[in-house]
Structure formats: C-alpha cells, structure tokens
C-alpha cells in the first residue's frame, strides 16, 4: 500500500480514537450521577494538574460560566456519556460544583412554572 499523502479519513468515518479511550475504558461515572442538564461550574482554575487529561482542562475552561452537561459535551465534541465520566473525575477532585436539575418534587412550585411560561412568551 502506498500512502497518498492526503487525508485518508473524513468526517463520516467517525472519530479516529474511540470515544471511551478518553476515559480509559470507563463507561459510567464512579460515584456521582449526572443528568444531561445538570449545571456545572468550575471551582478551580483550569491550569491542569497531575492526572488531568487535556479533556479535563478543556471542561474546566468551559465551565468558568455555568454550563449544562449537554452543552459541555457539544463544545468538547465528545459523547455525553464520556463527558459524565470526566466530570466525575473533576468532582472527586473538588474542581467543579454541580447542581442537579429541578426534580419533580420541586416542580410543584407555581412561581417557577409561571416564570418559565412568561419567559418563553417574552421571546
């Protein structure tokens, strides 16, 4: 086989590195459970550190502002399941704070429902 010199793969070929290689094969967070819309914020500067992969650092940089798990996944271009594992790593280092989405028990709050309706109507 002779190398052509050009790019021999394209977008449709999928990622060259399989997604869970980033997590060293882990497919589930060890401790915390993250929802797609759990809101994450960094509590430590994104200056790396021992044991942090480039993906961890990228997440910390993104999370200077509060961001949902789904948004982080979209920005780092990794599947949500992979991002949840990485976030769990960061949470165990106390590098991020996480707020779980509003649960059903708290949905009975009429004020919140009205705020949502008014907010959407005001678009």
């Amino acid at each position: 086989m002779e190398p052509t010199g050009g790019v021999w793969y394209d977008e449709s070929a999928g990622p060259l590195v399989r997604p869970y290689a980033v997590t060293k094969g882990r497919t589930r967070p060890a401790a915390a459970k993250f929802d797609l819309i759990s809101v994450v914020i960094a509590t430590q500067p994104a200056d790396g550190g021992p044991g942090l992969e480039p993906e961890h650092v990228k997440i910390l940089q993104l999370c200077r502002q509060p961001l949902s798990v789904a948004e982080i996944a979209a920005h780092v271009n990794l599947p949500a399941g992979v991002v949840k594992v990485l976030l769990d790593d960061l949470l165990q280092r106390d590098a991020i704070a996480v707020r779980a989405p509003m649960t059903r028990a708290r949905q009975s709050n009429k004020r919140v429902l009205k705020a949502v309706i008014n907010g959407i109507r005001a678009l």
Binding site: L36, I37, S38, V39, I41, A42, T43, Q44, P45, A46, R64, Q65, P66, S68, D94, A95, A97, V98, R99, P101, M102, Q107, V112, V116
Partner: peptide, 21 residues
C-alpha cells in the same frame, strides 16, 4: 461566576442556576 470567588466543594452550587428540561 469567577472560579476564585467560589469555595472548593459544593458551596458554589448556591449561585448556580437551576435547569429544567
């Protein structure tokens, strides 16, 4: 939401917005 303003751990969650879906 400066990272330096927040204490490590879960103290920052007070300032975090709540998300609904």
């Amino acid at each position: 939401y400066g990272p330096s303003d927040s204490e490590p751990g879960h103290d920052g969650t007070e300032e975090l917005p709540t998300a609904i879906k």
